[in-house]
């Protein structure tokens, strides 16, 4: 464990807590893409298949349970909570996220480190996580009015993988044989997808104006 990875995990944890806080306290999911939340639930379900077989540390297991629990409960809130689901804008959240899942699964079947079920599913989760934010970014551009909590959620979610890149650089220089191109490329692509959001997020923060993405 290094400071970059710990900061990344804490930023990731903060992003899910911000979203859960928003949905649970104000009972609204306005501006939140259910599609992205479903993709993230699938990312964690396929990445943490080893939660019962490979014990790495208490920290690792606890964090996996938190990410699994929070992502599935957010999907439940938006789909089934009698108050929250009324604020879900399904006419705007129309990204066909199946078009993301299929290419990721195909790519995982061809480009992976080992051809085993767990490894292919793990690689699928990496590719899927890289593009999981797209429905949310599309929704933000459509709805225009981005409330603070949703903006902070997307910012923290993008920042965590950026911190992981520093973690991979650190591990590359401190651990022998630590070469994982698939993880690194997926992580860089994921972070780059947030580039324009980060730009407008900092602009709005600097000029102290409401965050608005160009249509």
């Amino acid at each position: 464990m290094n400071i970059f990875r710990l900061a990344g995990d804490m930023t990731h944890l903060a992003s899910v807590l911000v979203l859960l806080l928003k949905i649970h306290t104000i009972k609204s999911c306005a501006g939140v893409s259910l599609k992205t939340q479903e993709l993230y639930a699938l990312v964690f379900a396929t990445r943490y298949l080893d939660i019962v077989t490979d014990f790495i540390s208490v920290y690792n297991t606890v964090m996996k349970l938190i990410f699994l629990g929070s992502s599935f409960s957010i999907v439940w809130y938006i789909r089934h909570h009698r108050v929250v689901r009324r604020s879900y804008d399904k006419d705007q959240d129309t990204f066909r996220h199946y078009l993301l899942m299929i290419p990721c699964m195909l790519l995982a079947l061809f480009v992976h480190e080992k051809f085993t079920f767990k490894e292919v599913m793990w690689t699928f989760s990496l590719y899927l996580e890289a593009v999981a934010i797209l429905p949310q970014l599309v929704l933000l551009q459509r709805t225009r009015n981005i409330d603070n909590l949703t903006g902070q959620y997307v910012f923290l979610l993008g920042a965590y993988r950026g911190l992981y890149i520093f973690n991979w650089i650190y591990r590359y220089f401190t651990e022998p044989h630590f070469v994982h191109w698939i993880t690194w490329i997926a992580g860089v692509v994921q972070t780059l997808l947030y580039a324009d959001f980060f730009y407008y997020y900092f602009e709005s923060w600097k000029n102290n104006v409401r965050l608005q993405l160009p249509a």
């Binding site: 995990d9 490979d54 690792n60 990410f67 991979w168 022998p176 044989h177």
Partner: peptide
């Protein structure tokens, strides 16, 4: 040599 893995990451 045991290959360092990123599977110990979240």
């Amino acid at each position: 040599t045991d290959r360092e893995s990123t599977h110990d990451e979240l």
